[in-house]
Structures are given as C-alpha cells and as structure tokens.
Simulated assay, not measured.
Amino acid sequence: MAILRGDHPPGAPLPREAELMARFEVSRTVLREALRTLTSKGLIESRPKVGTRVRPRDAWNLLDADMLEWYSRVAPPLQFALKLQEMREMIEPYAAALAAGNHEAPACERLTRAHRAMVDAQNVDEWVRADLDFHLCVLAACSNELLIPLGALIERTLEGQLRLNAKRAEVYNASLAEHTAVFDAIVARDAAAARRAMADLLGVTRERIEG
C-alpha cells in the first residue's frame, strides 16, 4: 500500500532487507516471500547490483483482486469510486443484455433469488449482500466464462461502493425499482431493455457518487 500510495515512487529503490525486516517485524523468509508476491503483481523488480526497485505504474497489475483492494484503501475515495464506476459503466449494461439473451435456467433461478433478497431486505447489511449478489448473478447469467472472474475480481471493492451508495440514499433500498427493471428485462429476454435498465441504474449510482 505504501507503493500504491506513492511513498516509494516508480524507479525508487526499496529500503534494504534489514530495514524492512525491522519495520515490519518479520523474518527474512517472510519478507522475501512478500517481495516475491509484489513482484508477481508487477509492483517491484529485482536486478543484480541494482537491488529492488518500484516498477513504472503501467506495469502494475491492478486487475488483481489483492491489488484492487489495496489500491482502494490508499487512493482518494472519490477518485477510486469514479474509476470503478467507469469500469462498471463500460461492462455492466452490455453484460445485462448478454444475460437477457443467453441466460440458462440455473442462472435465472439464482438471479431471481438475489432479486427476492433485495425485495425482502430489512436493513443495509441485508440489502448490500443481496445487491452484490444481484450484480454478480448478472455477470454469471451471460454464459460467458470470461466475465465470471471479473465479478470475483471486483467483488470486494464493489461491496464497499454498494454500501456507501446505500448509506447515501434517502433509504437503503432506494434503487429497488431500477434493479427490478433490470431483472424484469433479463427474465423477459429483452436485451435492449436490459441494457437500458442497467445503464439507468448505473446513472443513479453515479449521481450518488458525485453528489
């Protein structure tokens, strides 16, 4: 997180092993394992006679669940929320259209349960769990196995955004009607309506973020 925050800018060397071991109170074995993890995520690189340095930002693998969560903790909250929102706006309306055209019975049943849980939610926690499951179900209903890992990738950060949106609304389930429009269009296999309904829902989300 210190690297993502900019404490160690791209090209800068990391402190020596002894300093890092003392700072984090870990053994050399643990430290080296941690450095291998950061290397695999594109944050750092080690070279003989040069040491360990931070890689350029464009080498960082932010499409990694751990990296995305770490980044969400250190990035300016509004900036991160808008970046995640932009990603959702590019993907989810089309995913809803795909779900409408391609969903199979098991996926539709899971989406129905998620929508019912939203209808029945009695508090913010129940609503957020159901809301998150609803959006993950839409991705799963696309019948495109490449989109399912996307849900797993953004799940933790999306949950945080959904919780924030629920708390900013007049009531936690203020967007139930918009979710129901998405649900009805998918079940009816109306791809165009599903795309529009999801875009409308995300428009409400953006208004809450920017408000």
Results as ranks from 00 to 15, higher is better:
D190K: 11
I154V: 11
T205Y: 14
R5A: 06
A152D: 10
N61E: 12
F183C: 03
E69M: 13
T52M: 12
H179F: 03
I3C: 08
A97L: 05
I91E: 06
N123Q: 08
K49Q: 10
F134L: 05
T37V: 13
N61V: 04
L162E: 01
G101A: 09
R189E: 05
V50A: 10
P15R: 00
D64A: 12
M67K: 06
R168K: 14
A193M: 07
E45Y: 13
T112H: 13
A174V: 02
T112L: 11
H103Y: 09
C142I: 03
L153P: 00
P106E: 00
T29H: 12
G203I: 02
Q161V: 05
H103Q: 11
E86T: 14
R208S: 01
L132N: 02
S72N: 09
P9K: 00
E33V: 08
G42E: 10
Y71Q: 08
E17C: 12
A194D: 06
E155W: 15
Y71T: 02
M1E: 10
A105R: 06
R206D: 01
A194S: 15
C108D: 09
L14C: 10
R23I: 02
R208A: 04
V138T: 06
A2V: 09
R23C: 05
T157Q: 10
G51E: 08
A95M: 06
A192W: 07
L84G: 04
K49Y: 09
P9Q: 00
D131Y: 07
N123A: 04
E145Q: 14
E145L: 14
R110F: 03
L150N: 02
E207H: 12
L63F: 12
F80E: 05
D184C: 12
E89C: 14
R116Q: 12
V50L: 13
S143T: 04
P9E: 00
V124K: 08
A197G: 05
V50H: 11
A121E: 08
C108S: 13
A100S: 13
R28C: 06
I209C: 06
R57W: 02
F80G: 05
I209A: 06
A22K: 15
T112D: 13
Q161W: 07
R53A: 02
S72H: 11
L4M: 13
W60R: 13
V187E: 12
G151W: 02
R189N: 09
L62W: 08
I154P: 01
E145F: 14
A130H: 04
T37K: 07
R5C: 02
T180E: 11
L68C: 07
L20K: 14
A192S: 14
T52G: 06
L147S: 01
C108G: 15
G51A: 08
A193W: 00
I209R: 09
I154M: 06
N144R: 12
D190E: 12
L78D: 08
A199T: 04
